[in-house]
């Protein structure tokens, strides 16, 4: 197991692990265990109500998955870089409300449905990015810890969403509602866009230089800086990306609820963080897998929808989520032990 203390004779470097070992490692990896858990949970719900495995229920699941997945993806980037973003939930609300306001205004001035929706999407993304820029400035310039900086924007966003909307839903947009329901099989067009975007985010995290810097900075920011990486610039970009994705999620909620509601997304940062933790990322940064987060989001979505499906009060949702987080942390320590065994 040593690289310098007992150098092996020339040409006999340690063999790559055998196929059997690789299969064993794959089966005991956190990803596979999570996948088994996901399938088990789905079977559990189907056992209680045999209509769970149906195209109608699956299309519901995908819609709900898409509402949660972008901010969970954002949180994956942030957490791996060694930070945390508590503001994603209220950024969804504030961007959705502002976007709805703009759309309502444009449509009221005969701007046309589709152009209005496109401008609205840009506005949502822009508001989200603006929150991200504020977070980035507080963290990289004012040197606030991410927890405090994003707590500030969490509260401010929640309050502003209520102020802008006066507490009610802005706009009623049947066209958006109809479009958001069109698609094919169990997918809506909106969900296809979200899923493609999610796949791109996953690929960038794991095979691009940007993603590599994200891991390096979370793992050891001093080493990253000494290696010539502009740590501040990268960290800033991650919070802006996070805000942007929260803003786009605001637009997804707009389509889903056919209007901008100040309570959309409120509190969802906790589920996003839970999904990342369930997915196996380290809360101190430097380690994590995008696929883990995706399965984490899927599990939380299935639990949330499934409980309603079998008529269990949704108040149980938090308790079940807590149980999953505990399970995930347990798995993490177990798989750390199994690494030594294999």
């Amino acid at each position: 197991m040593s690289i310098v203390e007992t150098p092996p004779p020339q040409g006999t470097a340690e063999r790559p692990p055998s196929l059997l070992r690789r299969c064993a490692a794959l089966l005991t990896s956190q990803q596979s265990i999570l996948l088994v858990v996901l399938i088990a949970v789905m079977c559990f719900f189907d056992f209680h109500n045999s209509r769970f495995f149906s195209t109608s229920e699956f299309s519901n699941l995908i819609v709900d998955f898409c509402e949660a997945v972008l901010i969970a993806a954002a949180e994956t980037y942030v957490i791996i870089s060694g930070g945390i973003d508590l503001s994603v939930g209220s950024t969804v609300a504030v961007s959705g409300v502002v976007g709805a306001y703009v759309i309502q205004y444009l449509e009221g001035h005969h701007f046309g449905e589709v152009p209005s929706l496109l401008v609205g999407t840009l506005v949502c993304a822009g508001v989200g990015a603006l929150v991200g820029i504020i977070n980035a400035l507080m963290i990289t310039r004012a040197r606030l810890v991410p927890f405090v900086a994003t707590l500030v924007t969490l509260s401010a966003g929640e309050g502003l969403a209520l102020v802008f909307s006066k507490g009610g839903t802005i706009g009623y947009d049947p066209v958006a509602a109809v479009w958001s329901a069109t698609g094919f099989w169990i997918f809506t067009w909106l969900s296809v866009i979200v899923l493609v975007l999610t796949a791109i985010l996953g690929i960038v995290l794991h095979v691009s230089r940007y993603g590599r810097y994200n891991f390096a900075i979370g793992s050891n920011p001093f080493a990253a800086r000494a290696a010539g990486i502009n740590v501040n610039r990268h960290v800033a970009s991650v919070y802006i990306l996070s805000g942007l994705l929260a803003g786009l999620t605001g637009m997804i909620f707009y389509f889903q609820t056919s209007g901008g509601a100040p309570q959309s997304g409120i509190g969802n940062e906790l589920e996003a963080i839970a999904a990342v933790v369930i997915g196996g990322a380290s809360l101190v940064g430097g380690a994590g897998r995008f696929t883990g987060t995706i399965i984490g989001v899927a599990i939380l979505t299935v639990v949330h929808d499934g409980l309603t499906f079998i008529n269990v009060a949704t108040t149980w949702n938090e308790v079940v989520v807590a149980a999953f987080i505990a399970l995930a942390v347990l798995l993490q320590s177990l798989s750390a032990g199994s690494k030594k065994l294999l």
Binding site: G218, N220, A223, A224
Partner: peptide, 19 residues
């Protein structure tokens, strides 16, 4: 005290900043 990034592979560390 700068050191290496412990969560990255040896190869990734060697090429850190020069990918």
């Amino acid at each position: 005290d700068s050191g290496l990034a412990p969560d990255l592979t040896i190869g990734s560390n060697i090429f850190l900043g020069r990918e």
